[in-house]
Amino acid sequence: MKKHYIFLSLFFLFAFSGMSFSQCGEPLLNVCHEKIENARFLRSWPIQLPKQARGETLPQVSFKMPLTSGNTYKIFACNDADLPGKVIISIRNQNDDLVVTSFVIEQARHIPVIMFPVAMSGIYTFSFYFENGEEGCAVGVVAIAE
């Protein structure tokens, strides 16, 4: 009987650990989908980063995508409320010049949505990291504003 309980405990441990991981990806994107509103979805990136370790560099991930002159892009992210991290987006152009960031440092404030009417076509880099290096999970979304 004891063996059965150990087996069941292990099974549920694995089952639930899998579920908590999966909430970070597709379900979060589905919730985030509603924020697209009057724009056309283009691309999304799942972002899951650990807490910054002492003395280590800030964990971040970067993705590239082409943006075309004449299009206005709606850029935003959704955070998993179960984790402390609040995601910050920064965008650089193909010459690595910083174009915009979703965090106002002076006011320690997050900007929920960025609208970017592109004048210079090219491949842009989208970097994501969490405020104060907290552990976090988020989905970054890029859509074309109609």
Partner: peptide, 24 residues
Amino acid sequence: SYVYAEPTMQELNGVLIVIDNSQS
């Protein structure tokens, strides 16, 4: 050819609008 110029920002109802001053 690309000519980069620093973008300017404008915030409107919680939405940050980037004014892209660069040109290709």
